[in-house]
C-alpha cells in the first residue's frame, strides 16, 4: 500500500470539495471494504478523506419517512427500534450480512458502495474488466459459481455482494446524494448499475458526490416478511442466492408484495414482474411457484452457476412461504 495522505473533516462541504478537486482522492467511511481493496492493490488512492466525523449518523422518522444518515453503522441500523418495528425486513437483511464486528464499522453508505467479491476482480494478476477495463473477464469461462444470472454483459458477470441493499431495494428506498451543486435524490433501484460495457462503474454516483442519507417510506410490510439467504456455510458468507420478500395480506389475498433478490446480478435485483403477478392473488404455494417462474424469465447461467437457475426460484418460493406463515 502506498503511504497515502489522510485528511479528516467534520464538514460535508469540505469533504466534497476535497474529493471533487483531486482525482486520486476518495472518501473512507468504515473502511471494511476499501482498506481490504487497498491491501490487495485493487485500488490505490493517494488521498483518503475520513468522513467518520460527518454529522450523518441520525435515524429519524419524519412525516412517515425513515431518514437514515449515510454514516449510520450497519449494526446501529439493525438494532434501531424504529427499524425493528417498522422495517424488520431491513433488519433481517442487515443481520444476514458479514459479521458482528464488520457491521459495527461498516456504514450504510459504505455498504452501498462496496465492490463485488468476484475473485478475478480481487486478484490483480487476473483479467477483470471491472478492475482494469479492457483486460477481459476471468469469470466468463472460469469459476463463476457466485456470479450473475440476470442483466449480465459480455464484459462482466459479477454480482453486488450486499444483503442490506437487497432489503432496501425491496422497500422502495431513496438515496440522497450531496454534490457541489447541492443534494439530489434518486430511487434506490436506480442507484446501482448493470455492468453493460462499463463494468468499472458500479453505480450512478459521480466523482465528488457523497451519499448523505437514505429515505424509506413507511409501509405495512412489517408482518409478513422474510429474508432468505442461501450460502455455502451457515453464516459469514456471501449469498449464493438471497431473497427479500414482504407481503401485505388481506384474508390471504396479497394486496402488496415486494420481492428482491441478491447474488444474481450486478445490482440488487427487484422482481417487478413477479410482484405484478402476485398482486391481488391468493397467497398460495401454486401462486408462489408461478411467480418464481416469472421472476426467472431472462435468466442466463455460465456453467458453474447453472444451479442458480433452480436455487433462485426455489429460494423465492421459500422466502414467500416463510413470509406468509409469519403471524
Amino acid at each position: 500500500m502506498i503511504n497515502f495522505q489522510f485528511l479528516r473533516t467534520s464538514i460535508v462541504k469540505t469533504a466534497l470539495s476535497l474529493v471533487a478537486k483531486d482525482p486520486k482522492a476518495t472518501f473512507i467511511a468504515g473502511g471494511t471494504n476499501l482498506v481490504d481493496l487497498m491491501k490487495r492493490g485493487v485500488t490505490a488512492p493517494e488521498k483518503l478523506i475520513d468522513i467518520n466525523q460527518l454529522p450523518l449518523k441520525q435515524i429519524e422518522l419524519k412525516n412517515n419517512i425513515l431518514h437514515i444518515g449515510a454514516m449510520v453503522s450497519n449494526s446501529a441500523l439493525a438494532e434501531n427500534a424504529i427499524v425493528k418495528e417498522k422495517f424488520p425486513l431491513l433488519m433481517l437483511a442487515l443481520q444476514s450480512g458479514a459479521s458482528a464486528q464488520l457491521r459495527n464499522v461498516a456504514t450504510v453508505g459504505g455498504n452501498m458502495m462496496q465492490r463485488t467479491r468476484c475473485g478475478y476482480f480481487y486478484d490483480t494478476t487476473m483479467p477483470c474488466n471491472k478492475r482494469q477495463p479492457g483486460s477481459g473477464c476471468g469469470a466468463i469461462g472460469g469459476y463463476n459459481r457466485m456470479h450473475a444470472i440476470f442483466g449480465t454483459s459480455e464484459s462482466c458477470i459479477a454480482v453486488h455482494p450486499s444483503d442490506m441493499c437487497v432489503g432496501l431495494v425491496a422497500l422502495d428506498a431513496q438515496v440522497v446524494i450531496a454534490g457541489a451543486k447541492g443534494e439530489r435524490k434518486i430511487n434506490f433501484i436506480d442507484f446501482h448499475r448493470l455492468a453493460g460495457t462499463t463494468p468499472e462503474k458500479d453505480n450512478n454516483i459521480q466523482k465528488g458526490e457523497l451519499i448523505v442519507r437514505l429515505e424509506i417510506p413507511v409501509n405495512n410490510l412489517n408482518k409478513n416478511f422474510h429474508y432468505q439467504k442461501v450460502r455455502d456455510r451457515s453464516s459469514y458468507a456471501f449469498a449464493l442466492i438471497s431473497v427479500a420478500a414482504a407481503l401485505e395480506l388481506k384474508d390471504d389475498v396479497i394486496s402488496t408484495v415486494r420481492l428482491a433478490m441478491g447474488g444474481v446480478a450486478h445490482k440488487p435485483w427487484r422482481l417487478v414482474a413477479a410482484e405484478n403477478f402476485l398482486k391481488g392473488k391468493a397467497a398460495t404455494l401454486a401462486n408462489f411457484e408461478a411467480a418464481a417462474k416469472i421472476a426467472m424469465e431472462g435468466a442466463k447461467a455460465f456453467g458453474e452457476n447453472d444451479f442458480k437457475l433452480k436455487m433462485a426460484p426455489n429460494t423465492i418460493i421459500e422466502a414467500l412461504t416463510v413470509a406468509k406463515a409469519k403471524a
Partner: peptide, 11 residues
Amino acid sequence: FADYHVPVHAD
C-alpha cells in the same frame, strides 16, 4: 477466508 469456507460457529 471469505471464499474458502472453513466452518464457523453457526455450522
